[in-house]
């Protein structure tokens, strides 16, 4: 079965992102396809590679990047929500004339249409939020 996820909250502040990672791993273990993970609202903050959690804590963006690499996941960060919150990839950095970018490996920035498309194409859409 094709399952899509929407994540509405950033890392650490709320458990939503942790739950979504555990769910994603379990879904893959059960043989399902993760059609897309769509990061919205503060959920876009999951994609910053500049996060430095304490060494004895989990590193959520690294977990996503690793999962992406292993399973070729489609991790999509909403561009409108991302730009509001200062989440920016290299292309946008150049286009907007900014001096830095922060999107971690394995994530891509795209539009809200990707969320609707996930709703259309996937068999199930599950939302993690607050």
């Amino acid at each position: 079965m094709k399952i899509a996820l929407q994540i509405n909250e950033g890392p650490y502040q709320h458990q939503a992102a942790d739950s979504a990672i555990q769910f994603t791993k379990a879904a893959l273990a059960r043989g399902h396809e993760i059609y897309r993970v769509f990061f919205y609202h503060d959920g876009v903050n999951n994609a910053t590679r500049l996060a430095i959690p304490p060494q004895d804590d989990r590193n959520l963006y690294e977990k996503w990047s690793k999962l992406q690499k292993e399973h070729n996941l489609d991790l999509v960060v909403c561009i409108a929500a991302a730009q509001r919150r200062g989440m920016i990839d290299e292309d946008e950095m150049k286009r907007q004339g900014k001096d830095a970018n922060n999107i971690a490996e394995g994530f891509r920035i795209s539009g809200l249409g990707q969320l609707i498309e996930a709703g259309i194409e996937a068999d199930r859409l599950i939302v993690f939020g607050a």
Binding site: Q22, K25, A26, R30, H32, R124, I126
Partner: peptide, 15 residues
């Protein structure tokens, strides 16, 4: 458990 969560998602039509 989480795999049971996944099974519930699959068994129901919508979430």
């Amino acid at each position: 458990d989480y795999e049971g969560f996944v099974d519930l998602v699959a068994e129901h039509d919508t979430v």
